[in-house]
Design a protein around this nucleic acid. Structure first.
Lengths: 230, 230
DNA sequence: GCGTTGCATTTTGAATGCAAAATGATACTA
DNA sequence: TAGTATCATTTTGCATTCAAAATGCAACGC
């Protein structure tokens, strides 16, 4: 294979074992199957996946690099527990990245794109009206992700996804209070309007504020309920 | 050890083999010792580091996750070659992150912090006056990093560093043309002024534009010289 | 009774081994 | 000669093994 071809080729590739394990571990963490703050014995996970230690350990190193797992040399792998400082630090970063996605999305969005976001918005509003928070959260996430996709910056999406994974478990603590939920819904109406108007600067600002407001709400919940597992 | 203590402890830890290897590989790539677009035979690197394949392979997976290395299953590790698209995508992200760092830095900066940035700025101006581009670039990087540090968001710094690694080799192609170098220097004067005035919004805007301007300059160089190794 | 020390067990870090896939070279066919 | 098929060699993916570090427990001293 010529070297210069490397940047172009995009061949079919069956994922390797360790990649599948990385995905599976991330999944298990966000599903709560691997509780935050606990230790993960290698042997146990090997048995569960039916693989040897080598690919599992490779996956653990990758997860550790992403921050979802903390590796203590000679003392095993621990599911990373977000500190209040982590939350403080992560939300502004997410806000900046989403702001950028908003800007770019306004440049790129086709009418079909906007229509799709609008449809998702109404779907979310439906769940809101019914008080179905899990469904609301799911569609909410889809909206943010959709805007990211419209932005058409795969690298941005990748960075965003990796960070989103880390705060996924706390992100929707925010709407625990009805007040915050109402406010979030209103913010989303403004977000949709800005996208429809293709007002990139405004959309960027709204998304950024949206995330910062979420941070405050989450911190409040955490403060109130010190036992909430981050 | 109690689980809840985990988030607090900050013990001494000797880096493990694979971590050292990750650092070393990153270093070798940015030094050009591992040329972009080429293949890295495991055996060769093992010999060079005097280690077995296991920790080396762990390091490769981590680097691949960061994007500096591309892993083709059964076909080895390749030093990732940035495409023009990657450049297009990375600079706006860097710009957003730097903008955030500017905002935060303006909130936090002590007079001593500002004095330090100012000192670095003059040091950079000196190298500019002498036409010493390598030194200029080095100090330039220190200024951006210093602002990041003043922002006091370790997570942001970590994300930033990981992305900076990827574009490090092209970042300073920008100043290849004297025109761009002059402009960059002027932009840096405005950046310093905004920091001194603690004008977060302005500093954010300046840093963001600074990065976008860099992108255009870099792309121009790349277009002109198609053989430049990305 | 409480804390410390020493030792067996468990768990992790890294090296080695083995099978599968890819690579490269040669021979063969049209 | 161009193209394909075959096979030895190399390289990779994963499993296994071995050594070092950590853990847990019991014996011991105070």
């Amino acid at each position: 294979m010529s070297d210069s071809a490397l940047s172009v080729i995009q061949e079919i590739r069956r994922p390797t074992l360790h990649e599948e394990v990385v995905d599976r571990i991330r999944e298990m963490i966000s599903e709560g199957e691997l509780p935050v703050g606990t230790r993960v014995p290698e042997k146990e996970l090997c048995a569960k996946f039916g693989i040897s230690r080598t690919p599992l350990r490779e996956a653990l190193k990758v997860c550790a690099n992403d921050g979802v797992i903390t590796l203590l040399p000679n003392r095993g792998a621990w599911i990373t527990q977000l500190t209040p400082e982590d939350v403080d630090e992560l939300f502004p970063i997410m806000g900046s990245l989403e702001a950028l996605s908003g800007e770019l999305a306004c440049c790129n969005a086709t009418d079909a794109d906007v229509a799709e976001v609008k449809a998702l918005h109404y779907e979310m509003a439906m769940h809101y009206a019914r008080g179905d928070q899990p469904s609301y959260n799911r569609v909410n996430q889809m909206i943010h992700q959709k805007i990211m996709e419209i932005a058409a910056n795969p690298t941005l999406l990748q960075v965003y996804r990796s960070l989103a994974e880390r705060i996924r478990r706390v992100r929707y603590l925010a709407n625990a209070s009805t007040n915050r939920w109402d406010a979030a819904m209103k913010e989303h109406e403004a977000i949709l309007a800005a996208l429809e108007a293709r007002d990139g600067a405004l959309l960027a600002h709204l998304l950024k504020s949206h995330l910062l407001n979420k941070r405050e709400a989450v911190k409040k919940v955490i403060r109130e309920d010190d036992r909430s597992s981050l």
